[in-house]
Every structure is written in C-alpha cells, then in structure tokens.
C-alpha cells in the first residue's frame, strides 16, 4: 500500500471540505434543523407518540439518515468527478496508487465528512429534543457503515457520470425519494398492508429501520437484516469500483 498517497488524497479531500465549509457542513445542518422545526415542533405536536416515543424524537434517526445518505453520495461523487472534469485525474492514473489506496483515500475522506455531519446533526437534534440512544456502539457502527457504503456508491456515480446533470441525477431522483418513502418520518407499520409490502423493496427502509433500532430498541425489521444489507451493499459497491479501475471503464481511454 502507498501510505503517503493515501495520506495525500485524504488530506487533500479534507482540506477541500474546509474550503467549502458553509456548503459542506452548515447547509445540511440548517436544513435538518428546519425539518425539526416543521415536522418535529409544528406538525409533531399534532401527531401521536409512536411506540411510546414522542414524534419529534422518533424522526431523529430518519433525519440523520436523510442527511448522511445525501451527503455521502454527493461528496464522494463530486470528489472524483471534479478531477475527471478538469483533467487532474490523469495525475492519479499515472501515479503508483492501487485501487485500495484510492478507496481508502477518497472514500475514507468522504466517509469522515459524512460521519462528522451525522454526529453534528445528532448533537444539534439533542439540543432540540431529548434523545436517548439505547445501543450507542451499534449506532456508531451502523452510521459508519452507512456512510462508507453510500460514499462508495457516490464514488461509482462520480466515475460513471459524463456531466454535471448525470452527477446530480441519482442523488436527486433516486436517493431523495427512496429516503422520503423509506420511513424517515414514519414507521412502515403505520402504512396500509399493500404499501408496507411495496416499501419492502425499498433498500433504504432497512437502513432507517436498523438505525432506529440502535436508538429505540425497536424496528420494523431485525437489526441483523439491516446490518447484513448495509455490509452487502458496501461489498457490492467496492467490487464495482475495483472492476471499473481494473477495466478502466469510464476512467481510462
């Protein structure tokens, strides 16, 4: 492994975050606070407790997931798409770096950013509503795995995208609807039977359910299913990245 290369890529990506701090950190935090104000305070007071949990607290895991998934995908996609766009990817391709070095450097940095955003949102939420996390270690593990897997997914999108339109296509048209319909603001069990069955084909349902379990010790599905799903997704995404670099698909001419 090329440790100096990993360190360089990682440092470079983190410094990019500092350069765009308002966009990287403030924007997701402010939008999450707005969700709390609207759904938690304004509408939440009119909604009954769910499984004995106040609605404002219930939506915290879903809101964290909403932000983390979006940030993971867009951060990692942009991190590799921008060098492609301006041509600096040639420096990376001509350097003695392996796919593992690239994954640890780029996806590691994006994961760090998304994970930090998730934690900051949690701290912010804690200042607004009283949150108790039943399984904190599992919560951190699950958050990390979610960040890593969706950063890997975003990295694939960045490698695949030919233009900025394609770059935004997946986060806007796929991730956002899946998260909204994945139980961010409700429990799947609250849906009519037909829609419950339909929801089960949405992979994000398992993520939010698993993450919610780490907070409240209850979920729509077993935590093991959620954990297995996110680990499988990580493996699949990284396998695709390996294939793309090995074959040069969309990367090398």
């Amino acid at each position: 492994m090329n440790f100096y290369a990993i360190k360089s890529i990682y440092k470079y990506e983190i410094s990019r975050t500092y350069r765009t701090l308002s966009q990287s950190l403030l924007a997701p935090i402010i939008s999450t606070i707005l969700y709390f104000v609207v759904f938690g305070s304004a509408l939440g007071s009119k909604i009954d407790n769910i499984e004995g949990i106040e609605y404002g607290v219930f939506i915290v895991p879903g809101l964290v997931m909403l932000s983390v998934l979006m940030q993971s995908v867009t951060n990692a996609a942009f991190a590799i798409y921008f060098p492609k766009f301006i041509g600096t990817i040639n420096e990376l391709l001509s350097a003695p770096v392996s796919t593992i070095d690239i994954i640890i450097g780029y996806i590691g940095a994006s994961t760090t950013k998304s994970f930090s955003i998730g934690i900051i949102i949690l701290i912010t939420a804690h200042m607004i509503v009283p949150i108790k996390i039943v399984h904190p270690i599992y919560m951190l593990l699950f958050l990390f795995l979610t960040c890593f897997s969706f950063c890997s997914f975003g990295f694939i999108i960045g490698l695949w995208a030919k233009n900025f339109e394609q770059l935004n296509l997946v986060p806007m048209l796929i991730i956002t609807p899946l998260v909204f319909l994945g139980g961010s603001f409700y429990s799947i069990s609250m849906l009519p039977f037909f829609w419950q069955k339909i929801s089960m084909i949405n992979p994000v349902v398992y993520l939010i359910s698993g993450f919610r379990w780490t907070f409240f010790d209850f979920s729509d599905f077993s935590f093991i299913i959620s954990l297995s799903a996110i680990i499988s997704f990580s493996i699949l995404c990284n396998f695709i990245i390996f294939l793309m670099f090995k074959t040069g698909y969309k990367i090398r001419t």
């Binding site: 090329n2 440790f3 100096y4 290369a5 360190k7 360089s8 890529i9 440092k11 470079y12 410094s15 420096e91 990376l92 350097a95 003695p96 770096v97």
Partner: peptide
Amino acid sequence: SSVNFSRGLFGKP
C-alpha cells in the same frame, strides 16, 4: 500544496 500532493501521491515523504 499542489506540489506536495504530487510528491505524496508518488509515495514519497
């Protein structure tokens, strides 16, 4: 930083 980045990328301290 750009020049240091290149050196690091090629595995040099």
